[in-house]
């Protein structure tokens, strides 16, 4: 048993233990406040859907040795664009516009990082600012309601075969994200590039193409997260996604993805994202303010970093 644990880096199982511990703690502390009821747990799972979707993109980006700080701004731009388009056009046009906006910002990030050879930290820090501004400009800070029932059901409040659409989106994103990450050559190349870009290049892997593609992927998943928010809230606002960056990074790092690239886990990111959701929900039920949630999130990242960076040979 001990030997098994020794072969797995601590970051790989710490998340499961931590998740259980926090879950049980809340279940006991909040046994009279409806924490562990099926409806509350379902609710948490639905609320975390956009964060989970973004977290999957972030696993790819971090594994490739990059980072994407612009996801929150992409959420706002995509959701607002989809909402505005829905005033005049049908839902497929809005979906293409929303996802297209995310892809376009991802292409900008990816091109500057891969072909402009600029650090992703700085590029996406800049585009985060630019597109936060764009989101505010788009509708002059006004929120845009969405009256298209199909759109709202498809991305937010609907259900299929008894499963809420947000949970279905989560399952699809995790399944596809996991498959591509673990089971395809592309996933292997993402790992290799983040692990040792020179070695990846030496074996013929197109390093720049991989860097470019993970940022486009991350942009598109952030845009999908924007559509999920818009569908759930039946409208869009420039504040959507604003506070999500820290949550997403926390979820991914707690989940066991290396901050310095080369390895990660999609399932871990899902668990990490659910953990952040449980934490928020539990803290609210206990009567804490959003400010306390921010502190809790920050501390969680610290703990996560302290455990993951304590790998052997580091």
């Amino acid at each position: 048993m001990i030997a098994v644990f020794k072969t797995i880096p601590p970051s790989r199982y710490v998340i499961y233990v931590g998740f259980l511990l926090i879950f049980v703690t809340f279940a006991v502390l909040l046994r009279n406040d409806g924490f562990a009821t099926p409806s509350n747990l379902f609710n948490i799972a639905q609320q975390t859907a956009p964060v989970t979707v973004m977290a999957i993109g972030m696993v790819y980006v971090l594994t490739a040795g990059e980072i994407d700080l612009s996801i929150g701004s992409i959420v706002a731009v995509s959701a607002l664009l989809a909402a505005v388009v829905l005033r005049e056009w049908s839902w497929p046009v809005a979906v293409v516009a929303g996802l297209g906006a995310g892809a376009a910002i991802g292409v900008l990030n990816g091109a500057l990082v891969a072909y402009g050879r600029l650090p992703s930290f700085l590029v996406t820090l800049a585009t985060m600012g630019v597109f936060a501004g764009v989101a505010r400009r788009m509708t002059d800070l006004q929120s845009v309601p969405i009256q298209n029932d199909f759109f709202n059901a498809f991305f937010g409040s609907g259900s299929l075969l008894g499963l809420p659409s947000l949970i279905l989106w989560t399952l699809v994103a995790v399944a596809v994200g996991y498959f591509v990450y673990r089971e395809t050559r592309y996933g292997a190349h993402v790992h290799a590039v983040g692990d040792n870009a020179r070695a990846a290049r030496a074996t013929g892997i197109k390093v720049l193409r991989v860097r470019f593609s993970v940022l486009v992927l991350s942009g598109m998943l952030a845009a999908l997260a924007g559509l999920l928010y818009a569908g759930r809230l039946h409208g869009a606002r420039y504040t959507l996604g604003e506070a999500d960056l820290l949550t997403v990074i926390a979820a991914v790092i707690v989940g066991g993805t290396r901050l310095n690239g080369g390895s990660g886990t999609i399932i871990g990111a899902l668990i990490g994202s659910l953990l952040m959701g449980i934490l928020n929900n539990g803290l609210i039920l206990m009567g804490y303010q959003p400010s306390d949630q921010m502190i809790a999130r920050g501390l969680i990242i610290l703990i996560a970093v302290a455990t993951t960076l304590r790998e052997p040979n580091r």
Partner: peptide, 28 residues
């Protein structure tokens, strides 16, 4: 400097850039 990816297993390094796939989904 050997050009190995340190966090990947030996077999992935051996097949880096030339990974073997199987089936219609081209799984590793």
């Amino acid at each position: 400097d050997l050009a190995l990816a340190d966090n990947q297993p030996v077999y992935m390094n051996m097949f880096l850039g030339k990974e073997l796939v199987k089936g219609p989904l081209r799984r590793l």
